[in-house]
Write a protein that binds this DNA or RNA. Structure first.
Lengths: 340, 340
DNA sequence: TTGAAAGCGCTAACAT
DNA sequence: ATGTTAGCGCTTTCAA
């Protein structure tokens, strides 16, 4: 492996000149720059990451804490991860993937200076990792929103608002008996806040409109989807509006409704909360509130990298949800009884 | 951040003693070790990763090239990734995730000494990355099997054998008209070899038994699954055995068969090739050849890390498939016409 | 506009 | 069993 001294020698300059030519941190004459570049090419020189990290205290690596817990949707996780990797690489950063993100792992990579910054996913209301994260010297961005975000930067979809928007879309069309098929039970039990916020927004919107609301956690399996649909139809036989916040279950929910003889949207209107590609790749596209997972991941990387140079004030950033009508809902006429 | 000199000072020893106490590369008296450990604890000392990498030429990081290409099943990808991360962390290694794995990215991380080894996923028959990979000084393990694996270490499920096993399970039960609903068209077109090997094993087994075989690439969407089932039933209306090598499509294939009035296993026998958890979390569990993605990922990490110290001979390692009968197939009586 | 030189924090010969 | 010392390859002050 060629070193910076090899390059310097070959270009007939000093090592520091090569370094500055590479970093652009001081002016270099056109001629010198040319010779340095030729030498670099000729030797296929690449600065040693460790040496650079040692001298500059920067690794150009961001850590990504992405626990692979049960009940979380790998599909959505992957979109977040892809977004983070893309966003990071656009800024010249690589990503160290940590799936086992207990507190010791966090402080290990942080205090060994393996990463310049940290993006953390799957935040719980009272997440046990928060104290360790607040104590780091590296900037941190959470994808999610803990109960107490003080001292931390967070980005997420505004799930409360998403719950509102989904419910309101149905309420405004005259529906008065709504159900939310939500995240799997274990996700809810962990107090993963997106589930709680979604539930809350949905419930509040229904309450404000004087409509009945049913919350039904739903396992991310075919059986889970079937069971949840069955449960909803039993507890609220006259339901006319269903919100589905569960990407895996969604197609099976639709199938099960059909199986029960409930046509969408004639008998029951459906609004999903999921990434757009999911909503459009179903046999019948479904009206949905978009979960822009890749965008959020990309923004998280961007924010945290900006933070490395001290350019990022603490903030909580909640993206406003947008609903796209794809025809899986319909208006209920006043006085109409749409149940079969 | 405390340095090794701080620790040495506090423990009243030299820096090298601290280093050796940490690495165990030479004997340390019990008393000295005790004092070093106390100092480390007291100062919350963690060796600087960059400094260590510079001095020892080791990063304790393995790179994982996991392209997120269209058509690949994120679910399965994630299981591989999880396996690699788990296997690596068991040996004290972290994982640098690279999703944009063109040749320049590979040589960048390799020659910058950012990683000690590389695991590469989603291998095509004539993968353009192979020359770059063969040229690295770091050990490499491919998850997959290129047309010409010389000079490389590979691990994968023996998909040829898997195709055989799946077909034979049906052939031995008297089925003579079989279809394989396989990977998405774009995966096949890229010459991703698991798809080709699976097809080949399936076709060969059918040919050897004198049975008719139909290959049907299948998009990983509900619509794709429906279209493929429809196409198979049109081209081979008397099909009685179906192999599904497409995790996403699988539940929808089953639903579509039902929709066509073909009961499983009464009218049509089904064998899947997928991770076990997929096969068992369907409404009706399905007989399957297991795709042990997590295990393969873990083994890949293990092999490549072993290779760092020169302990890994080049080899191609293909895991033998195992079929688990879950009752989604049945025997056809001689002379019986099982088509509805 | 460029060069010389002092570290960055650690490992691993080489001594004792 | 432990200490001394010479780098590892780079960045960045200080000088010119």
């Amino acid at each position: 492996m060629a070193t910076i001294d090899d390059v310097a020698k070959r270009a007939g300059v000093s090592a520091s000149t090569v370094s500055y030519a590479l970093s652009g941190k001081r002016p270099i004459s056109a001629e010198t720059r040319r010779r340095v570049e030729r030498a670099i090419k000729a030797l296929d020189y690449r600065p040693h990451a460790g040496a650079r990290a040692l001298a500059s205290s920067r690794t150009e690596v961001v850590g990504l804490l992405a626990p692979l817990r049960s009940g979380v949707d790998v599909n959505v996780i992957m979109q977040f991860v892809a977004g983070v990797v893309t966003g990071a690489s656009e800024r010249g950063y690589d990503v160290l993937l940590l799936t086992q993100d207990d507190r010791s792992n966090i402080s290990r990579v942080a205090s060994a200076s393996m990463v310049d910054a940290l993006v953390v996913m799957d935040i719980e209301a009272d997440d046990p990792r928060l104290p360790a994260l607040r104590a780091l010297r590296q900037p941190v961005v959470l994808i999610g929103l803990p109960a107490d975000p003080h001292g931390l930067t967070c980005i997420d979809l505004d799930f409360t608002s998403a719950g509102h928007v989904a419910a309101r879309h149905l309420l405004e069309r005259g529906h008065t008996r709504l159900a939310l098929l939500g995240s799997p039970p274990e996700v809810v039990e962990r107090h993963t806040t997106y589930a709680e916020r979604m539930n809350h927004g949905f419930t509040a919107a229904c309450a404000a409109a004087g409509a009945k609301a049913l919350l039904q956690p739903t396992a991310a399996t075919v059986a889970g989807a079937n069971a949840s649909v069955d449960a909803v139809l039993e507890q609220m036989p006259d339901v006319t509006g269903i919100v589905v916040h569960n990407e895996v279950a969604l197609p099976h929910v639709l199938a099960r409704l059909r199986w029960h003889g409930r046509a969408v949207p004639d008998d029951v209107s459906v609004v999903a909360l999921c990434p757009e590609n999911t909503a459009v790749s179903l046999p019948e596209p479904v009206t949905s509130v978009d979960l822009p997972a890749e965008t959020i991941g990309r923004l998280a990387a961007d924010m945290v990298i900006t933070g490395i140079d001290g350019g990022q004030p603490l903030e909580v950033r909640l993206l406003s949800p947008t609903l796209t009508d794809r025809g899986s809902t319909r208006a209920v006429a006043p006085g109409e009884d749409p149940t079969p």
